[in-house]
Simulated scan of single mutants.
Amino acid sequence: MSEPTWTAVDEYFNAALIPADPVLDAAVQLSAAEGLPDIAVAPNQGRLLNLIARIHGARRILEVGTLGGYSTIWLARALPADGVLVSLEVNPHHAEVARANLKSAGLAEKAQVRVGRGVDSLAALAEERPAPFDLVFIDADKPSNPEYLAWALRLSRPGTVIVVDNVVRNGAVIDAASTDPTVQGTRRLFDAIAAEPRLDATAIQTTGVKGYDGFVLALVNS
Results as ranks from 00 to 15, higher is better:
L75S: 00
L30H: 10
P80A: 11
R59P: 06
I39Y: 03
G57E: 06
H56T: 14
D21M: 11
S31C: 05
R59C: 06
L67V: 09
I18L: 15
I18R: 07
A27H: 06
D25V: 11
V28S: 09
A15Q: 13
L67C: 10
I52N: 01
I73V: 11
N14S: 14
I73T: 07
L62D: 01
A53I: 15
R77G: 01
G46A: 03
V64Q: 02
L51V: 15
L36Y: 04
R47M: 07
N44M: 09
D38H: 07
G46R: 00
E34K: 13
W74V: 03
A15I: 09
N14F: 12
L51N: 14
A27K: 02
A20D: 13
E63P: 03
L24G: 08
A32V: 12
P37D: 04
L67F: 13
G68P: 14
L36F: 05
L48A: 13
I39Q: 11
L36S: 09
A15E: 14
D25P: 06
A40H: 07
R47T: 08
P37F: 03
I61S: 00
G46W: 00
P43E: 03
V41N: 09
L36T: 04
A26Q: 06
D21S: 07
A58M: 03
S31T: 13
D25H: 14
S71V: 08
I61D: 00
I73Y: 01
Q45F: 01
P22D: 15
E63N: 10
A27N: 03
P22W: 08
D25R: 12
L30P: 04
G57K: 04
A76M: 13
Q45M: 08
D25C: 09
W74Y: 11
E34Y: 11
P43A: 09
L49V: 04
W74D: 00
A42C: 07
